[in-house]
């Protein structure tokens, strides 16, 4: 694999992490803003900086793609390739994602319901932008695949985007507030997180031509995602059934364990996003 491909995948991976952090923070704050009296401003700052970083990474990835198309850095200076990409679905994707991220960043500039709504619209645009290109964007079942992808990504964004705010809250909010947040978040997660798997399985059934395709690089990365999901569910269960009740019982040391667990979850999902960046940029389902 050429260095330009690896660099493009790295840009794409970091871009995914930043975009999902920004969109997910907006989704999390739309539900939990009132529960963060001491850490709310830090969470909004996280959303702002993530959105800003994601805009820079989306732009950098878009600017670097001509180098991938030509197989070397001279592609960076090929205006016709830049124009070709800007006029393609990749250009539309980048434009919609940047618009969404700008709205997220704008929504986090100040506190308030109106700003929160703007951030939420931005987060939705970020997620929807993923349906304009890629394996789910073509074929006669485009709308079904796009719907499954939106469900998959919205829930993933909420889950991933909640982890850093939970980490910040565990360090700044009191025990009672943390216990309330964890209880509410766990109750929501139990209902919606399994849908990440259901929607992902639906897309897999539609995209993979056969079980044998699971032995291809695309299939192996997909299996890696499933394994990471199983591990994440284990960690989430640990948080819900062990750490949550301990925090509710007023044991402060459980907050430290919660912060560690949340960081591990964040790292795992970030790794999954990098794997997805490689899977969708370099390989085909068949």
């Amino acid at each position: 694999m050429a260095a330009v491909d690896l660099f493009a995948v790295a840009l794409r991976g970091f871009g995914f992490v930043a975009a999902f952090q920004a969109a997910g923070t907006a989704l999390f704050l739309s539900t939990f803003a009132d529960d963060l009296p001491r850490s709310g401003h830090r969470v909004r700052a996280l959303g702002r900086s993530s959105a800003l970083a994601a805009v820079a990474l989306v732009a950098a990835h878009q600017a670097f793609e001509p180098a991938r198309l030509l197989g070397g850095l001279p592609g960076l200076f090929d205006a016709s390739l830049h124009l070709l990409l800007l006029r393609s679905d990749a250009g539309t994707t980048a434009a919609v994602r940047v618009l969404g991220l700008v709205l997220v960043g704008f929504g986090f500039l100040k506190e308030g319901r109106g700003r929160s709504a703007v951030a939420l619209i931005g987060a939705t645009l970020v997620v929807v932008s993923f349906t304009f290109t890629g394996h789910t964007a073509g074929g006669d079942r485009r709308w079904l695949l796009a719907t499954l992808l939106i469900v998959h990504l919205l829930i993933l964004a909420f889950w991933f985007g909640a982890l850093m705010p939970l980490y910040l809250a565990a360090g700044r909010e009191d025990l009672n507030t943390n216990a309330r947040i964890i209880e509410r978040f766990s109750a929501m997660a139990v209902r919606i997180v399994p849908l990440v798997f259901v929607a992902g399985a639906g897309m897999t059934a539609a995209l993979l031509p056969s079980f044998a395709a699971l032995r291809t690089p695309y299939g192996l990365l997909l299996l890696g995602k499933v394994a990471a999901f199983a591990l994440l569910m284990l960690l989430a269960s640990l948080n819900k059934w062990r750490l949550g009740p301990t925090i509710s019982a007023g044991r402060g040391q459980a907050l430290r364990a919660l912060r560690t667990s949340v960081l591990v979850e964040w790292g795992l999902i970030a790794a999954v996003l990098f794997g997805t960046a490689a899977m969708t940029a370099l390989f085909s389902p068949r």
Binding site: H135, T136, G138, G139, D140, R141, L144, L145, V198, A201, G202, A205, A206, L207, L208, P209, S284, P285, R286
Partner: peptide, 19 residues
């Protein structure tokens, strides 16, 4: 219903980009 929907998805031609 879930199994039927899954089978319907799997039974159709898989989409892949050009090769």
């Amino acid at each position: 219903a879930g199994v039927a929907a899954f089978a319907l998805l799997a039974a159709q031609h898989a989409f892949a980009h050009a090769q």
